[in-house]
């Protein structure tokens, strides 16, 4: 037992996980309402989806939603991996991989949002 605490997970990361979780719940509520209740049969055709994204508010909301989901899922996965007590070096590697993956996925998602938005037919 080392008496010096291991760094790597502290209050701020945990708080980010909790906060992103709560925000996801809010946005998910809107997302679900819009997808399954407002649109009569849900957003089921390409045309409908593209139309939906013309609203800048929607664009912002979905972009934020994506970011929060990526943060929450990667922090959660990281927590699960930490439960397996990986060596310090592995943990650092995972931190880097997750940072890279998170960035790429977020950029790809945002690019997708704008790409779809511009596909007006």
């Amino acid at each position: 037992m080392q008496s010096t605490p291991k760094s790597g997970e502290n209050f701020w990361l945990w708080f980010l996980k909790i906060a992103s979780g709560i925000l996801i719940l809010f946005i998910l509520a809107i997302h679900l309402t819009v997808n399954h209740f407002t649109a009569p049969n849900g957003l089921l055709s390409h045309r409908e989806v593209v139309a939906y994204f013309q609203n800048p508010l929607v664009l912002f909301m979905e972009g934020l939603f994506l970011l929060l989901l990526v943060i929450h899922s990667l922090l959660g996965l990281r927590g699960i991996i930490l439960d397996l007590n990986p060596p310090e070096s592995t943990r650092r590697l995972i931190d880097i991989i997750f940072l890279v993956v998170g960035t790429i996925v977020s950029l790809y998602g945002w690019w997708l949002l704008f790409a779809v938005r511009s596909l007006t037919s």
């Binding site: 605490p5 291991k6 790597g8 997970e9 502290n10 209050f11 945990w14 927590g79 930490l82 439960d83």
Partner: peptide, 14 residues
Amino acid sequence: LALADSQQGVWRCH
């Protein structure tokens, strides 16, 4: 406080 707020501390509790 340092031990509680560390990787092997309270945040690991699920």
